[in-house]
Amino acid sequence: MTGGRENLGQVKNPEGMDETLLSKAERRDTAVHVQGLRKHYGEVHAVKEVDLTIKAGEVVALLGPNGAGKSTMVDMIVGLTTPDSGIVRVFGLPPRQAVLEGVIGAMLQEGALLDDATVIEMVGMVASLHKNPLPVREALRKAGIEELARRRSTKLSTGQKQRVRFAVALVADPDLLLLDEPTAGMDVRRRHEFWHSMQEFTASGRTVMFATHYLEEAEEFADRVVFLRDGRIVADGSVAQVRSLAAGRTLRATISGVSEPAMRALPSVVNVEIRQDKVAVLSSDSDTTLRALLSRFPHARDVEVVGVGLDEAFLALTSRTRTSEGELS
């Protein structure tokens, strides 16, 4: 069934796919593989049909407004929430198995702490549950909370609590670290300290996926940015692309009989959106794009050029209302 690939076809899998499609090397190189993921809570569709592959060693930021489905996605990747349909694999393993193997470390938004235990007790206990944990002191040092070891969690500030939860995630010595809003409630200085300790972790080639509200964080610390809105990935690209998105301008025009490939063929085009005859082109060099657009489509009307900052780009990508399935207005 997989031809020349390493044969894993004998693996019995109730979902009837995936294992047979991934070779061993691909498993090692693919930190997260998500396919056709859906989840709804009652009437609310939290995640709709998401496909995402994260390579080992990537640092990926998951951006999106509240309710975009970020936390639900993180929950499904770590196996806390079972998807309605779709596949999740972490280094080739189903989430629960990846957790049992100590492959996943996660810092959840609501993963609070025990009121009646000290920092070292909590981190130590979690370490004792894992197969190959880091020494507890090392995890505390990496999270920058060595001096808080004997403190009860009731006596910690919000930022300190976040770092304790970071230590709890780190102590498993995981290959994939998932962080849901890791710097929520921290001031700017604390955020910098936090990301500094994170860099030590990513420097060793581990994979990190973090959900955040802060664009600067995504820009500064991620290799790749995934925008989520209304339970769908609306943009996915490298930080360089995001930067050009931010530095770029949006060209709008009305062009009858326009096609997406034709627009994409224009120079310096980052992104194209077409609705009927209305075109919105995101360009990293609007002058070049505009000249090419006008020479190729002399009949273009209502031409306008507007600048976008990262914030606007982000807002544009994540907060527009959808008029119909998959179409932006």
Binding site: G105, L108, A112, L129, R165
Partner: peptide, 17 residues
């Protein structure tokens, strides 16, 4: 109940326990 409400049980679910 206390540790469930605090979200600690979710954290435990992310361990091999």
């Amino acid at each position: 109940m206390n540790e469930r409400e605090a979200g600690w049980q979710r954290q435990l679910r992310l361990t091999p326990l």
